[in-house]
Write a protein that binds this DNA or RNA. Structure first.
Lengths: 257, 257
DNA sequence: CTAATTAGTGTCAAATAAACACTTATTGTT
DNA sequence: AACAATAAGTGTTTATTTGACACTAATTAG
């Protein structure tokens, strides 16, 4: 028997949910009112949506549940990217009363498994219920101070997203079923935070085979109407046993050196 | 309060420790004797080294501790790659007596955060102590049935290694301080399981700037002696706050399309 | 019918990747 | 001392990919 203490921690999943809207990459946050014992006025805290993992759930299932409860969406792109387990992570939050409770209850420690989700933010109907009356979309450059170590988790997710988007054809998950080449380019430019050459972008996307051009075009725009495309899911849509999409091309999708 | 049960699970780290020896990629496993209540003879089980995360530890620290206890090595390449938390994962092991105990004690559930470690297997002096009298190096193609879901974890690690080795200069972690170009190529060929062109490999490695040629050469070989190289750690050796190496080049290290 | 706006298109130069075979330095053998 | 065996080391040519760059086309608003 070890002399070292190992009180079982709580285990949660937190979801970094990205959406893309009006040429802006957005993060879905939960606004919570937390009673402040000193001021007796509620503090407003923002946090990543998350929940404890239940006995009968595996991690992917828990993340999917959080997502579904919040957005009403199922079977969307969701990928585990990192587990966070600093014993002091709870204490990083602003709310001092929590810090005290952690000191007194080491078993209040929470280890969280973070997931990144990419959704078409138009499809997400924020659900009525315990979560959703507080859910808000926030542009990624206007993310406020978050509870716990959620800012760190978000920063990690953003870095992971930037890397993944250059290796795997996942950007589509953020767009509607039908989209124009310009929308797609704008998405990539937003995520990568740099301009891309229009002609080179089109060439690369079209040659890669991940786009299916549709005959349909924009209507009602006061300029040359753009063609719509859809994502070619045939390429390698391998949905794992938990219904999680995991798109991977055979070779590298190395978009922009 | 939720109607759903959330008994706190145990949280552990498991380490997939790779070594390279005699042109073979090897995995470091623990051999355990587990009393079998039925046969009253010990079953021999192999498992990934791992341990519960302690109260005062973060995840990286716990993984480093497991590694140090087993190999005596510190500050080596260690990277978290996935958390596994299927509630039935314990039950996947062969030993039926465990399965029963899990059914009776749902709190026996273990969520594990898996790490991949790359070490110069010559440097690892398997430590005397509770772990090491049972530690063995096994070629990756001869890995036996492992406890729990450790085979799945290992398979995932191998896939992750193959991907990472093509994007980041981490192969060096598996070699001695000084190595020849042929050793390096053999390592890459072993990991990627395909032949590489000698001249193209040399050119790419040398142009990438990750190698520092030494004046020293092999002695005592009955052929043209090879030059030794060492890894250029200056490139971007960013050791995080937990002493974990995290090598990343500025651009992509896209070695082999 | 003119202006404004965004879509859509091709070429050339530079960089990178892929294919390919012979010479060199050393030891062991005769 | 010559020779055989072995693995190290070295360049060139071709094909492919990338990056830079500017005009025409289709539509609506005024």
């Amino acid at each position: 028997m070890s002399i070292h203490a190992s009180v079982n921690p709580h285990v949660s999943t937190d979801c970094v949910i990205f959406g893309f809207n009006q040429d802006t990459l957005r993060l879905l946050l939960i606004r919570r009112n937390i009673p402040n014992k000193i001021t007796e006025v509620n503090d407003i805290h923002y946090a990543l949506p998350g929940d404890l993992v239940r006995d009968d759930e595996n991690l992917d299932t828990a993340a999917n549940r959080v997502l579904a409860e919040l957005t009403g969406l199922k079977g969307i792109y969701l990928e585990q990217f990192h587990a966070f387990g600093d014993p002091l992570r709870i204490a990083k939050q602003k709310d001092r009363s929590w810090l005290e409770s952690v000191r007194q209850n080491p078993e209040a420690r929470v280890i969280t498994v973070a997931y990144m989700a990419l959704i078409d933010s138009n499809k997400a109907v924020l659900q009525p219920g315990s979560f959703s009356k507080e859910a808000v979309w926030v542009p990624i450059h206007e993310v406020p101070e978050l509870a716990f170590d959620h800012n760190e988790i978000f920063e990690n997710a953003l870095i992971a997203l930037r890397e993944m988007v250059q290796l795997q054809p996942i950007g589509f998950e953020l767009l509607p079923e039908k989209f124009t080449m310009s929308q797609l380019q704008s998405l990539y430019e937003t995520i990568l935070e740099r301009d891309l050459d229009k002609r080179n972008f089109r060439r690369k996307m079209l040659n890669s085979g991940v786009l299916i051009p549709l005959s349909e075009k924009q209507i009602g725009v006061s300029n040359k109407p753009a063609r719509f495309y859809k994502f070619n899911r045939e390429i390698s849509d391998t949905r794992n046993e938990n219904g999680i999409l995991n798109l991977r091309m055979d070779g590298s999708f190395n978009l922009f050196g």
